[in-house]
Amino acid sequence: MSDRKNKYMNPYLAGFIIGLMLIAAYYFSGEGLGGSGAFKKVVIASVDAVAHDYAKDAAYFAPAVNRGESPLNSFLIFEILGVIAGAILSAAYFGRLSFKLGKGPNITNKTRLVAAVFGGILWGIGSQLGRGCTSGLVMSGMAVNSLSGYVGLIAIFGGGYLFAWFLRKLWL
């Protein structure tokens, strides 16, 4: 038990496993793997439940709401439920299942939590505007040689390196 405590899997093996899952997703369902898609569907379903009259006419919600089928009854939602189950299994195996706060060594917990919320907001907006996040846009896009995947790859990582120097206090 102790020899696997907080160990990490070989990164190439982990990548290989994720790659096989991506192939399976395309083979069985014709879809890539998503991260932000499930967030979107939860937002749509909750707004629809609270204010259907608004949702059926609003440009953002209408296409999903008026389809007559719950947005939760979808590939991306069940995939994310699986991701949660898989992550918990793996964390339990490696002894990482505990409450913890990850951060750079030189910032306070409060700074980290505020930054996390802001980072999340940027991802929320970006993933909707860009039609997906690192999983759905870039990784799944690269898997089928889609131009949009490579545009996203360059923009996300290029943008990251562009801002890295200014934000180094958060991480170093």
Binding site: G32, G37, P63, R67, F75, R131, G132, G136, L137
Partner: peptide
């Protein structure tokens, strides 16, 4: 036509 969101991570 406006296209409905189909698949992917949109």
């Amino acid at each position: 036509k406006k296209q409905a969101a189909a698949g992917g991570c949109e």
